[in-house]
Amino acid sequence: MIRFLYGDALDGMPVLRDTMFRDRATQFANRLGWAVHVDENGHERDEYDDINPLYVIWQCSDGRHGGSLRFLPTTGPVMINDHFADLTGGVRIKSPRIWECTRFCISPAGASRKTAARVLLGAAALGKHFRLTHALGVFDPAMKRIYHALGWQPVLAASGARDIHVGLWSFDDIDLPRLRLRAGGDESELLQWDDLGYETPDITPLSA
C-alpha cells in the first residue's frame, strides 16, 4: 500500500522506519556517493527528518519499505532555500502551494519501475488533493529519463556544478494513464488515505 505518514507516526512502525532510513543510506551514501550523514544505526537522516515531514511510502506486503519520498512545505524550513539558493538564482521559494520533495528512494531489495511509479502516484494524488501547483526539489540528473518513462517528469529549473539539479514537478502535467499503468493499479486500489483520517469515498478521483 502507498502510505501517507508524518515523521511522528513512523515511530510506531519501527520496521518500516528502519528499513526506509537504511535503504536511504544505501542509495544516497553508498550508491550515489552524496555527502549525507549515516548514523550509528545505519540510518541516513538529516535535520529535515527531525521537523516532522510527510512521507509518501510504498510499504511492501511484509511491512518493509519499498520506496519513498519526503514532503515539506516551502513556507517553513526546506533544503532548497537553506542550502541550494545559489541554484535558484537567489530566489527563496515560498508558497503554501509549493512543497519541497526530496529523498526519492527505492529499496535495492525490490527495486523496480513499478515501485517508483507507485511512489510518484502517491505524491501526485497527495499534491492534487491539497491543491498544490508544484513540487520542487534537488534530484540526481540520471533519474530524469526514469521520471519521463513513468509519466511525470520534472522540468529542470536549475543545475549546479555539483551534478545536482533542481527539478519542478507540475501537478498539471501528470500523464495519469501512463503513471497508473506503470504503477499497476489506480489510486483507489493503492492509496491508504485513512493514514490521514480519510474514508476513501471522500476522495475525489484524480483527473488529469
Binding site: I93, K94, T133, H134, A157
Partner: peptide
C-alpha cells in the same frame, strides 16, 4: 532564459511574499 514552469514558481513565490 528560464522555463515557463520556473517562471510560474518565481511568480507564485513573489505573489506569496
Amino acid at each position: 532564459r528560464i522555463s515557463e514552469h520556473t517562471l510560474r514558481v518565481y511568480i507564485e513565490s513573489a505573489r506569496f511574499k
